[in-house]
């Protein structure tokens, strides 16, 4: 239930993948493309991935979560390519018997993804472009 795709992501697909008869909660994180960074208007985002490694690192996050929390299933989907304002670069869904574990695991998943998974985001402005977080 780990996926990198150039096609639009579907939130329901991630939810369906973690559906479980023992689940009392499904927590979903949806990342969306924001129209501003600081005071600059963003036109679009471009994502690229070192795909083979990114999939492995995403799988490691799912494995680690299953060691840390009693979750039932995890889906992590990331989109690459060109995304317009409002589109969805990432969807994470976690199911667990009780809501607290799903909330905590889902937050851990997106926080860790942003630190370890080799995916890069370029913000395109009307007057230029910048690789996000590249410089201190």
């Amino acid at each position: 239930m780990i996926k990198i795709s150039e096609q639009p992501l579907h939130v329901q697909e991630a939810i369906d993948q973690v559906s479980h008869s023992e689940a009392g909660a499904v927590d979903v994180f949806i990342g969306t493309v924001r129209n501003r960074t600081k005071d600059k208007s963003v036109v679009r985002l471009e994502f690229e991935a070192y795909e083979a490694m990114a999939l492995k690192e995403m799988q490691k996050i799912a494995t680690l979560i299953k060691e840390k929390w009693p979750v039932l299933a995890i889906a992590i989907h990331h989109r690459i390519g060109v995304l317009d304002i409002g589109e969805i670069p990432v969807v994470i869904a976690v199911s667990s018997p009780h809501r607290r574990d799903a909330f905590e695991a889902c937050k851990f998943a997106i926080d860790t993804l942003k630190e370890t998974v080799p995916i890069w985001k370029k913000e395109i402005f009307e007057d230029g472009e910048v690789w996000v977080a590249a410089h201190p």
């Binding site: 070192y50 990114a54 990432v90 080799p118 890069w120 690789w131 977080a133």
Partner: peptide, 10 residues
């Protein structure tokens, strides 16, 4: 060897 600059997924 793959060069990994600061990642910024999500």
């Amino acid at each position: 060897v793959v060069i990994i600059p600061p990642v910024s997924g999500g």
